[in-house]
Write a protein that binds this DNA or RNA. Structure first.
Length: 296
DNA sequence: GGTAGACCTGGACGC
DNA sequence: GCGTCCAGGTCTACC
């Protein structure tokens, strides 16, 4: 980190564990995220509204996190960065009601002591939506390859370390023809990403309203499903990232786990997965996400 | 509302 | 090494 670095301290609602957020799902393996397990430091390359690109190092401290940005930031930029990191790590999320309900379930008792429950988010809903589209109908290795291609080809380099880049903006991706995205390895998903980028860039798709508005879960879900490339699974995955936990993201893995857990390995459908977690009400998404599955 | 087929890629498998 | 099959969600067309 350079001597021009900016440092922020951000408090988190307890209980909090940075490693629990970082390891909450596979997002940490997608650029521009990075994680040093030895030091427990989360890294990320972000873009501020002023078009400042800066690398971040985020470390856990006693009551939250310390954030070090590689660039010298104005007061306004520091406030924006604080809001970004608060969103990404869910620092202001109160999960005590979930923990209270989980206390009576042996398969979820582990979440309390380890402060699990927050789910790592990217700095923008656009980035998380693109990444979610790139998880569909492919392997996890395929998702990593596609996201890496987008960042490496179209992301803006970080001035202090040009090898690392921020995730491309809607404007940047909207300027890329779908055929080029297809050739970059996105396959048939290319037009979905291109349409999304164009829609967000020209204001036709208002992702900010889904994140910051006062919409109900069904209203947010309906708007997500209207985006090409977002189906039932992807919409529910995004609802989880948005803090709406009253749906379970049902994919092939979920069916496999529910089959093993409650149906002796017999094939199950969406109905069985849904029924398995309905009793968790507004927390069913988190209950599913952090359930201690019988893997084998 | 439900279903079938197409979309694209990588991995597993058989020859 | 090559060809074939399959898994992974979503879209569109059709019933």
């Amino acid at each position: 980190m350079t001597e021009n670095a900016t440092q922020l301290h951000l408090a988190a609602l307890p209980p909090f564990s940075l490693s629990a957020v970082v390891l909450s799902h596979g997002w940490i393996r997608l650029p521009p995220f990075g994680y040093d397990r030895d030091s427990g430091t989360l890294t990320y390359v972000t873009r501020l509204g002023s078009d400042t690109i800066t690398g971040l190092q985020i470390a856990e401290v006693r009551d939250g996190v310390d954030v070090t940005a590689g660039a010298t930031l104005t007061a306004q930029e520091q406030a924006e960065l604080a809001a970004q990191v608060t969103w990404m790590l869910g620092l202001n999320q109160d999960l005590v009601p979930f923990y209270t309900q989980a206390r009576g379930e042996p398969k979820l008792a582990h979440v309390i002591g380890s402060a699990r429950g927050r789910i790592l988010r990217s700095s923008t809903l656009f980035e998380d939506t693109v990444k979610t589209i790139l998880t569909t109908n492919t392997s996890w290795a395929g998702t990593i390859r596609m996201v890496t291609a987008l960042v490496d080809r179209y992301g803006t380099p970080q001035p202090a370390d040009p090898a690392r880049r921020a995730f491309p903006t809607p404007s940047q991706l909207s300027a890329v023809p779908a055929d080029e995205l297809r050739a970059a390895g996105l396959g048939y998903r290319a037009p979905f990403v291109a349409d999304l980028a164009r829609g967000v860039a020209n204001g036709g798709i208002e992702l900010a309203a889904l994140r910051d508005g006062d919409l109900t879960t069904p209203e947010v879900r309906t708007q997500l499903l209207a985006i090409k490339g977002i189906g039932a699974y992807a919409a529910t995955n995004l609802l989880m990232l948005l803090g709406h936990y009253d749906f379970v993201p049902i994919d092939s893995w979920a069916k496999q786990m529910v089959s093993r857990e409650w149906h002796d390995g017999a094939p199950v459908g969406k109905g069985e997965v849904k029924a398995a977690f309905e009793t968790w009400g507004k927390w069913q998404g988190l209950a599913y996400w952090f359930w201690a599955w019988e893997r084998e």
